Simulated scan of single mutants.
Amino acid sequence: MSESLPIAFAVYPLLLSGISLIWLVSLRHRSWLNWAVWALACGSIIAFAFMTNPWAFTSYYLRYVFLGLFVVVAVFSSLLTKRGGSHSGTRYGRITVPSIVVFFLFAVLDILAIASHYPSGEMLDVTFPLRSGTYYVLQGGASAVTNPFHVLGGSKLALDIVKLNSFGNRADGIAPQALSAYEIFGEKLYSPCYGNIFKVRDSLQDNLPGNPDTEHPEGNYIVLKCAEADILMAHLKQGSIKVAPGEVVTVGQPLAEIGNSGNTLEPHLHIGATKDGMEMGLRFNGRSLSINSVIAGM
């Protein structure tokens, strides 16, 4: 089951976006009001897919392709409506009511997705811990809409970060079986702040993709005390950690490499912060991140 999840994640945004486009382009001879409601409903679905779906399983750039397709389809369907006049007949109410429901449902989800970029509560501002590439938030943000698996796991403000290749994918394919096929595997991790190393684990082997180690959720990890907060950086590569508990580190100091140890389906960096046992949000160079956020490394 876990090995098929990347395929499901890849198909999901394409399917959701495709259905909304087909839904809109199939309209014929409706009234202008009817067309407007359908267009709003489809647009709200496209916006939801654009903001919250995991596009990096195929290509991050596809989200912009579907956004452009929506504009084209909306214009095309409006022209059909203009030619068709208002021959909606008795179908007017039957079609408009469900489209209104869909619009309001996805509009609420879209608002939650936008709000995920503006978390409430105390935040810790640190330096982004990765360099020399383009990085992508695979899961994150202060909302169950953008961060569902972390919310279910009790770390609702944590982030999962991968690296994108030139095609906007986080790997060479949808679900490659070689760890080296994932862009972020072996990537150097740098200290996001000045602080003290609190805990370290470096002994667990890296799992093959799709084979998580559920007995050791964090895998190999570092806990860094930064100001009054603890930053957890997890799923690190076996034997790569360069620091020890009690060591003082500076901003930008190499700490380890990204691996695939612990309860993870594929290589990525899991990062989150706590203060006095309570979770707190992270800002990177003053920026709050959510799913589909892209960061250019230094």
Rank of each mutant, 00 (worst) to 15 (best):
G89Y: 03
A56Q: 07
P13A: 10
I241V: 13
K188I: 15
W55G: 03
P119I: 15
F76K: 01
A171S: 13
G286M: 12
G297S: 07
I95Q: 05
Y190W: 10
I95G: 01
H29L: 14
D202L: 12
F185S: 09
A144S: 14
A10C: 10
W23Y: 05
M280E: 11
V72D: 03
Y61I: 13
P267D: 07
T146N: 07
V248F: 04
F48P: 09
I222F: 08
T264D: 08
A244S: 13
P176V: 10
L27G: 03
H29K: 14
R287A: 11
L265K: 02
E279C: 05
A49C: 14
V102Q: 03
R170W: 09
E257I: 08
D110R: 06
S4Q: 12
F104I: 14
N260E: 05
G219E: 10
A74I: 11
R91N: 06
G85D: 04
I291Y: 03
M233S: 06
I46L: 14
L109Q: 04
A227D: 15
G262T: 05
S44K: 03
G141P: 00
R28F: 04
F128H: 04
S116R: 01
R30K: 10
V294I: 13
S132Q: 09
N220M: 11
H150D: 11
F76I: 10
I95L: 12
A39R: 02
K156C: 04
S77F: 02
E247N: 03
